[in-house]
Design a protein around this nucleic acid. Sequence first.
DNA 1: AAGTGGTCTAGACCACTCT
DNA 2: GAGTGGTCTAGACCACTTG
Lengths: 256, 256
Amino acid sequence: MGAAPGLLTLTAAPAVGVARWATLAGRWRERIVAGDWPSGAAIPPETELAREAGVALGTARQALSALVSDGLLERVHGRGTFVTRGLAQASMLRFFRFGPADLPDTPGATPVPHSRILARRPVRASTEQARRLGLADGARVLRVRRMRLIDGRPVLLETLWLPLPLFEPLAVLAPTDWDDLLYPMYSRRCRVTIVRAADELSFGALDAAQARALGLEAQAPAVRVEREAFDLAGRCVELRTTLGDARAFRYRAEIR
Amino acid sequence: MGAAPGLLTLTAAPAVGVARWATLAGRWRERIVAGDWPSGAAIPPETELAREAGVALGTARQALSALVSDGLLERVHGRGTFVTRGLAQASMLRFFRFGPADLPDTPGATPVPHSRILARRPVRASTEQARRLGLADGARVLRVRRMRLIDGRPVLLETLWLPLPLFEPLAVLAPTDWDDLLYPMYSRRCRVTIVRAADELSFGALDAAQARALGLEAQAPAVRVEREAFDLAGRCVELRTTLGDARAFRYRAEIR
DNA sequence: AAGTGGTCTAGACCACTCT
DNA sequence: GAGTGGTCTAGACCACTTG
């Protein structure tokens, strides 16, 4: 049923009820996920893609647009279409304003805080963590604790959980060799591209040790950020919990 | 220079350096803002718009798409294209989870909290407020204080400032006649459509009176939400400050 | 000048909604 | 079945970037 309508089914998709551009987008998404089109590189020009796929230019463009709005591709007028290098500035400083009472949002002006790795070792994922990472119960993950500092002053405490076959290179990396920005480091050392993240914010209080580490009084009010970060394939590949002084918390949310 | 290239300049736009679809989008935006195409109503079909404007169908569709992503229009396959009725669910409950330890996000399931107007009277806008509302210094605004309750329990305290010629109908409305949802009420009583809002979140502590009103201990930790809301024309027409128990605070932010 | 993405045309046909 | 938006075609030309 739904047999080949013509001579060749090599080019366009036979899928029923699915727009041709959606089928194309899916096919090209696979090539990106597989690394066939590597991160940061240009993909073939629109005209060539359209010709290869046997569709009109407009149809190919619609497929590309879908991948752009999914954050997998970036178009640059006159230069080409590129596979995303992933998030660079998903900084937790989106949620906090440290330093001398900042002026209104000036991203880019804010310096990247220094990172100090406190501990990192393989552990068993909890049931909940395994579920969120899409792993088997009790799977091995790398647990990382780090502190983030601005001008030498501790401002954030973080704990991360990273699936372990995937992030093996980091399990053996000396704490002093870790970069301040993790996502570009994931990309370089583990071939993991972070495309999307979801942050869940809540309020709590610091315990004695946490407060001491951040130079605050015990029971100081704190904001907790629980992050899930996703790769090109849409898999959750990082869990992270960040703690910071609630009095430095400031965040702008747009509706619509 | 750059004079009319043909016989008639009645239809397409002569603007240089601006895409034709952008010009059309601007023209149609004006009709929406002016109320020429009223809120909630269907606009003429694409084919008619394209014919009127003297452009190809694809060009008209691109202009409409721009207005859709700006939140001014909504398309419904098979039915038509409609001017937005504005935000209905910009509820502050996006930021708080009250009641019996809610399950993961189930919007729509959360009930609309009841609204009790505590006070409303015309005042002079502060310099800062006037600036943000785009008004002259010391302009008249309606200041409204209200409490929001869930199952009769006070959970949020709000203060609003509304520009006064515009919101005059509310200045004389009996406190008991106010609706629980403000934005549909703005639309009905003042012909103001709220399309977009920006919320600035920060952390603080409740003073004695505020804590008493919310049934919390003095100095209880609080989250403060400072909102600016915008109408179809992109003008800021509402300032609002909301206070709630920080321990009920929970918010999910997506990156990219 | 060559190569890329962006805009635009003038059609055709399909999918959905309502009466 | 009539009317709407959604998809698709096969071209053309424009705007931007780079050698």
